[in-house]
Design a protein around this nucleic acid. Structure first.
Lengths: 201, 201
DNA sequence: TTGTGTAACTTGACAGTGTAAAGATGGTGC
DNA sequence: GCACCATCTTTACACTGTCAAGTTACACAA
């Protein structure tokens, strides 16, 4: 009692939501559970986030920020003499690693109806993540003399689809059979994709 | 009153669930709404499906059956003189078309925590759909002299990832900006993929 | 220092949810 | 005609998100 001022409840609720998400999964998550974990009454979140959707939208925005940082780090940390092919592989590995490290957050970001998908900031940050992953594609196309914008966009889409599809299947595998370490070992389709993009006409 | 025997409530509930799913989306769907739409009391479903998860698992199983049929039809209906490349494109088009025609069902099948993902029948039918989509990949590899089983599996994974990733993005686009006809026009990454697979070493 | 406004949080209430238990109904097999 | 039993209803409970009204304590002006 007498804790009418929490300090930074907004941040506390976001952290609580993340924790509850990992503990109970996206289906077991509830606004009241987040409030309880943050040590406040069940209606406290209303003042900071208009609704449950608002809280999870904000959490997804933050998650996309972390996700983008991880992709950028993988790209930047790759050997300075690394080929574009290798840099693409590094970004793909980071993509998969994030999905396996933060499966519930990943599902929240990409396949949950709870966050407001039409939220401007969410659209913006997911676009930034996409741009980061496909950052290496344009140089790859340049190297092959491909200048057609539409073709480049298709190659970007192909790169994203490949890694996202693989991450999606890996998580599904994990849901069914439990943790699957063999998935983390390598990423076959990304290797193929690199070869493919290098051979592109 | 006095309708203690519905006839085929099991089927009625599945149809009701499909209808509610399309009307209110996967988040607005509730067991009680399905029961009401089927014209029975809110607890009637319990006897046919142990839980909400049970009902939606069954719906997903049926949906995967229809999905597989659509993929098979696209493959079989394609011109008898069609190249493997064209058959793959046809299957990919059918995949995307299903996603756009039945967006809520598609999300239920591939990215909802509500169906029981460890259900044996669900795993079986989703495996059949996967097999149907990738049916053309092995012949494609054969034609290129690729016999390594691991490489073939990677090519299948690449094919699925490509089309699924594209369908996923198309639906997200649709959620944000409303119906997007331009997506249905063609499927760039699939065309690229065909070329790719034909060039595979 | 005192008063007042206001943001932050609590309390209480409401309609809606899934699910379990117990009661009602009516078709089926003996 | 009788008993069984699958099927459906009724009732109840704990839980959910969200709204409205009340409470607290900080900030700021006089």
């Amino acid at each position: 009692m007498s804790d009418y001022h929490h300090g930074d409840l907004r941040k506390g609720l976001l952290e609580a939501a993340h924790a509850v998400l990992n503990e109970k999964g996206i289906h077991g998550l509830s606004l009241r559970a987040c409030a309880a974990k943050a040590g406040v009454s069940h209606a406290a979140p209303t003042h900071h986030f208009k609704s449950l959707s608002g809280l999870l939208t904000e959490l997804a925005v933050i998650a996309f920020g972390e996700f983008t940082k991880a992709l950028r780090k993988a790209y930047d940390d790759s050997d300075s003499e690394a080929t574009l092919h290798q840099r693409l592989q590094a970004a793909g590995n980071a993509y998969l690693q994030f999905a396996l490290d933060e499966p519930e957050l990943f599902k929240l970001m990409f396949s949950s109806p709870l966050p407001d998908q039409s939220n401007e900031r969410l659209i913006e940050v997911s676009g930034q993540a996409y741009a980061e992953l496909t950052r290496v594609v344009k140089p790859l196309c340049d190297a092959k003399g491909i200048t057609d914008k539409a073709t480049i966009e298709q190659a970007e889409l192909l790169a994203w689809s490949t890694i996202h599809g693989y991450a999606h299947l890996s998580l599904k595998q994990q849901d069914i059979y439990g943790v699957c370490d063999d998935m983390t070992a390598g990423m076959p389709p990304m290797a193929i994709l690199g070869t493919i993009l290098e051979q592109m006409k």
